[in-house]
Design a protein around this nucleic acid. Structure first.
Length: 594
RNA sequence: GGUUCCGUAGCUCAGUUGGAUAGAGCAACAGCCUUCUAAGCUGUGGGUCAAGCGUUCGAAUCGCUUCGGAAUCACCA
C-alpha cells in the first residue's frame, strides 16, 4: 500500500515541478488518529526543491495526486503534513485481495539467499535452562521468518560434547554415581548428568577449602586439587582415545541427548543438522597451522600461536596453546570453514548471547584475514541476558530456572485458569491437555519473544504466567473467539468466501483493521530483515486488540444488512488467519477453542 | 583502564531511513455480561524520554560530554 502511495507521490511531484524526487525520501505513515485521513506524507524534505512553503507544496501535491489516481478520495494539509484519505473502494479491494490469497501471503524478498543458522548450542554437562529457551525460541522464529520471506534456511545445532566439563560429570559418576542410570533412577538423562556435575563442584569445593586452610591461594588450590588433576587426566585419556573413557563418555552423552530430545520436542524446536564438537575440534588446528605457514598467524617463543589484532581495535588473540592444544576460537574457526564448505551459504548466522560479542568480532576478523570473502556473511545474532527479579541466574546459588520445570509450570497454570473458567468443561481430557499445553507454552514463548532480542530482559515468573493484556493467550483467545463466531456463521449458512459488494462503506474501526491486515507482509519482511521476532509479536498484539474493539460493537450474526455482515465475516476470516500465521512464525500454536 | 551495548510512566516493554500533543500492558481507581467466549471492552490518573551541550524547519531517535547499569578484554567454553 505504502509503495503505491510513494510511487504516486513521485509521479505527481515530477509532473508538478519537472524534478525527480527520491522515493527513499518519501515518508508515508499512518495518519494519527486525531486527524482526518488514512496515510500521511511529510513534504518537508522536498521544500528545497519546490521553493514553496509547506502549505502550498503539500496542497499542490495533494491536488495532483487526487487528479492522477482514484485511490485518493480527499486530502487535508496541516502544517506540512499531507493527510490523504483513501476511497472506501480501495479498502474493500484490499480486503478482497487478502481473502483471495487464502488469508495472508508474504511478498518474497527480491534477492533470496541461503542462510545457515546456528542456535541452541548446548553443553552436555547440564540440562537446558531459561537462557537456552530464549536462544532456542529466537533461533526457531528467525528461521521461520527467513523462510517465510523466501530464503533458503538450514538450521544447525552445535553440541559442545567434549572438554573438561563433561569429564567432571563422568568422574563424579564413577566416584559417587553408584551405577545410576536414567532407567534405574527414573531421572531424565540430562538431569542425572547435571547432578553429577554439581556433585563434582561440591566435592571440589570441599577439597579446595581444605587446601586453602593449609595456606594455599584459592586459584592455586583449585588447580592442585586431586579431583581437578583427575579430571584433566581423564580429558587427556579422552583425547588419546582411551577405550574405557570413550565408552563412558558415549554412554553419558547418550543419556543427555535423550533428555535434550524431550526438552526440544516439548519446546517445538528442531534442526536440520547437528554438529558435535568432538567431530570438528581438530579441524581448527589444521586451519591455524595453514595460517601460520601463510604468515597470517605467528608462532611465539613459547610455541603458542597468536595474532595481533590491535590494529583492528581488538587485542592479541591466542589461537593455539603453547602445548599445541586448541582453544575455543580454534574450534569455531574449524566449524565455520567446514560448514561453509558443506553448504556454501550466503549468510551464516550465529544465535549466541551477547557475552560473546567480542568472540564473534574476532572470529569474523580471523576468517577475513585468512582470505575467506564469505566472512562478510558471518552474522552474530546477539541477544541479551535473561535475568530474574532477584538478579542473574547463578548455578551456585541454585537460581537457575530449568527449562523442563518452567514449561511444566506454565502448562499447570494454564490448566488451573482454564478449569476455573470451565470453558473446556465438556472437552475430552486429551483435547483439554492439548489446549492447556498450547496456552502455557504460548504464554512462555510470547513473553520471551516480544522483547527486542538485543536487549537484556527481565523474566518475572509471576508476570510470565499472566494471561491478560500483552500476552500470548490474549492473542490465542482473540482468535478462538473469532473461530466461535465463524462456526456460527457457517451454521447459519453465510458464505464467507464471497467478497462484499462495493456498496458497503466500512467504518473507521473496520478500515483500521483492514489497514493493519494489509501491512502484515511488510511487518514480516521487516522482522526477517532485522531478525527480530519481537516486531511480529507487537504487530499481532495490536491486531488482536483492534479486532477485540471491533468485536465489541460490530455484531456479525445479528447484523441485518447482509452486505455489512459479509464484510464483517470476511474481516474475521482474514484476521483469524493472520493471527494464526503470525503466531506460527513465533513458534506458537493456536487452540481452536479455549 | 580499553571496547561494545543499554538508560522511555511505580513495574515490564513498544516507539526502524529524524516528523504533528511520546504509546501499550501490568498495577491503582471507576464503569460494561438476559446480546457472536468478560482470558474481553470503555474511561481516569501517571513522563524533565538519565543529565547537559550541539546538528536543523523539526531530536526519545544523529554527534560530543557527564552520570548510572551490563557484558567483554583468558594458553575457560
Amino acid at each position: 500500500m505504502t509503495d503505491i502511495l510513494i510511487q504516486l507521490f513521485c509521479e505527481a511531484f515530477e509532473a508538478l515541478y519537472q524534478q525527480k524526487s527520491d522515493p527513499e525520501q518519501v515518508n508515508v505513515q499512518k495518519t494519527r488518529p486525531e486527524f482526518k485521513g488514512d496515510f500521511t506524507i511529510n513534504v518537508f524534505p522536498f521544500l528545497k526543491m519546490t521553493r514553496k512553503n509547506p502549505q502550498v507544496t503539500a496542497t499542490e501535491i495533494g491536488e495532483k495526486m487526487k487528479e492522477m489516481s482514484a485511490l485518493v478520495a480527499s486530502f487535508e494539509v496541516i502544517q506540512g503534513f499531507l493527510n490523504i484519505s483513501l476511497s472506501d473502494q480501495i479498502y474493500l479491494e484490499m480486503l478482497s485481495d487478502l481473502l483471495k490469497s487464502g488469508g495472508q501471503m508474504v511478498a518474497p524478498v527480491k534477492q533470496t539467499k541461503k542462510f545457515v543458522v546456528e542456535y541452541s548450542s548446548p553443553n552436555t554437562n547440564k540440562p537446558l535452562h531459561l537462557g537456552h529457551i530464549r536462544n532456542n525460541l529466537l533461533g526457531h522464529s528467525v528461521c521461520a521468518l527467513l523462510k517465510e520471506v523466501g530464503h533458503e534456511v538450514v538450521k544447525v545445532n552445535l553440541v559442545n560434547d567434549r572438554g573438561i566439563h563433561i569429564c567432571k560429570s563422568m568422574l563424579a559418576w564413577q566416584k559417587w554415581g553408584n551405577g545410576a542410570t536414567p532407567e534405574s533412577t527414573g531421572k531424565k538423562g540430562d538431569k542425572l548428568v547435571g547432578d553429577m556435575y554439581v556433585r563434582f563442584s561440591q566435592e571440589l569445593k570441599k577439597e579446595t577449602e581444605v587446601l586453602i586452610s593449609q595456606g594455599i591461594k584459592a586459584e592455586e588450590a583449585e588447580k592442585k586439587a586431586s579431583l581437578m588433576l583427575e579430571a584433566r587426566e581423564m580429558l587427556k585419556k579422552w583425547e588419546e582415545g582411551d577405550v574405557e573413557v570413550r565408552e563412558l563418555w558415549e554412554r553419558m552423552n547418550g543419556w543427555v541427548y535423550d533428555g535434550f530430545d524431550v526438552t526440544y520436542k516439548n519446546l517445538g524446536i528442531s534442526f536440520d543438522k547437528t554438529y558435535y564438537e568432538s567431530q570438528t575440534y581438530l579441524l581448527g588446528k589444521e586451519i591455524v597451522h595453514e595460517g601460520v605457514s601463510r604468515g597470517v598467524f605467528s608462532v611465539y617463543p613459547d610455541q603458542s600461536v597468536r595474532i595481533d589484532l590491535t590494529a583492528e581495535g581488538l587485542d592479541e588473540k591466542v589461537l593455539l596453546r603453547s602445548d599445541g592444544t586448541s582453544v575455543y576460537i580454534t574450534q569455531d574457526l574449524g566449524t565455520a570453514v567446514m560448514r561453509q564448505k558443506e553448504y556454501n551459504a550466503d549468510e551464516m548466522v550465529y544465535v549466541v548471547g551477547n557475552e560473546q560479542n567480542y568472540h564473534f568480532q574476532v572470529l569474523k576478523q580471523l576468517l577475513s584475514k585468512l582470505g575467506h570473502t564469505w566472512s562478510e556473511g558471518v552474522h552474530h545474532l546477539s541477544y541479551g541476558m535473561v535475568e530474574l527479579p532477584e538478579g542473574k541466574m547463578k548455578s551456585r546459588e541454585g537460581t537457575v530456572v530449568d527449562a523442563d520445570d518452567l514449561m511444566a509450570e506454565m502448562i499447570f497454570t494454564a490448566r488451573e485458569v482454564s478449569d476455573e473458567s470451565g470453558k473446556l468443561a465438556e472437552f475430552p481430557d486429551a483435547e483439554k491437555s492439548a489446549v492447556h499445553r498450547m496456552i502455557g507454552l504460548g504464554a512462555l514463548k510470547y513473553f520471551i519473544l516480544k522483547v527486542d532480542p538485543k536487549k537484556n530482559m527481565l523474566f518475572d515468573p509471576r508476570e510470565s504466567i499472566e494471561f491478560e493484556g500483552n500476552t500470548g493467550p490474549f492473542i490465542q483467545y482473540a482468535r478462538a473467539r473469532i473461530n466461535s463466531v465463524l462456526r456460527k456463521t457457517t451454521e447459519a449458512g453465510i458464505d464467507h468466501l464471497k467478497s462484499a459488494s462495493n456498496q458497503v462503506c466500512p467504518d473507521e474501526t473496520e478500515k483500521d483493521l483492514i489497514r493493519q491486515l494489509a501491512s502484515y507482509s511488510d511487518v514480516i519482511n521487516l522482522a526477517a530483515r532485522e531478525m527480530n521476532p519481537g516486531l511480529v509479536a507487537n504487530y499481532l498484539f495490536a491486531l488482536a486488540k483492534s479486532y477485540n474493539q471491533f468485536y465489541h460493537d460490530h455484531p456479525v450474526l445479528r447484523e441485518n444488512d447482509t452486505e455489512k455482515q459479509l464484510l464483517r465475516v470476511n474481516l474475521s476470516v482474514v484476521t483469524a488467519e493472520t493471527l494464526r500465521k503470525g503466531m506460527f512464525l513465533l513458534g506458537i500454536a493456536m487452540p481452536e477453542r479455549m
